[in-house]
Amino acid sequence: MDFSPFFVSIRVAILATFITFFLGVFSANFVYKLKRGKGMIDSIFTLPMILPPTVVGFFLLLIFGRNGLIGGLLHQIGVQIVFTWYGAVVASTVVAFPLMYRTTRGAFEQVDQNIIHAAETLGFSRSKIFWRIKVPMAKSGILAGTVLAFARALGEFGATIMLAGNIPGRTQTMAIAVFSAASANNRELAFTWVVILSLISFGTIVMMNRLSDSNKNNKKRRKDFG
């Protein structure tokens, strides 16, 4: 059995989660602080979650294709996105981004405004408020968003196959391998990938629940003490 889809998947998912993490946290902070046009920008940022993945993939092909806005620029410096594993990373990042962004923004919005104001009156700079107050206070939300984004990136299929194609050993992820095996009538192989994917996904959710539980317990213990 060829295990390359496993390694392609993990590599793509980890890199995509890494990029999505920073993009998501900063976009969440940006939208959270916006006074005008919040709804519009929020809609745009959430769109990849709602659109059919093939539609997202089609847009990405337009943007990253050789004649596309970004694709053209990258082509000049010799980087190709379409039909490479970079493409898989781009597709996974875009599709996972709304989960990271929305969960983090929700966590930021939960932070008591008075605490932010208190920090301001005490002379904390903006970046100090962000790194020392907002991010630590939204920690569990950010972690949950990261886990969700990782799970989504790992299971990404539609946009990936449009942008990166299905090249065994290079762009064929586990999710795509299931599709390939099933359409080639190789039920056994399809089943193997299904089991592996299900186990990883299940493990991620368990981990996330553990994280949020331990957080609650911490808070509860502090309350009881007081």
């Binding site: 008591d112 008075n114 104001h117 208190a118 009156t121 002379g123 630590p136 206070m137 920690k139």
Partner: peptide, 27 residues
């Protein structure tokens, strides 16, 4: 607010919940 040098005590005190008393003051 950072440049106004106003000491503001909020109704709910608005302490930083992620820091100990020591760090609340030291920060």
């Amino acid at each position: 607010p950072q440049q106004r040098k106003v000491g503001f005590s909020f109704q709910n005190y608005a302490l930083f919940p992620i820091m100990t008393v020591w760090h609340n003051i030291a920060s």
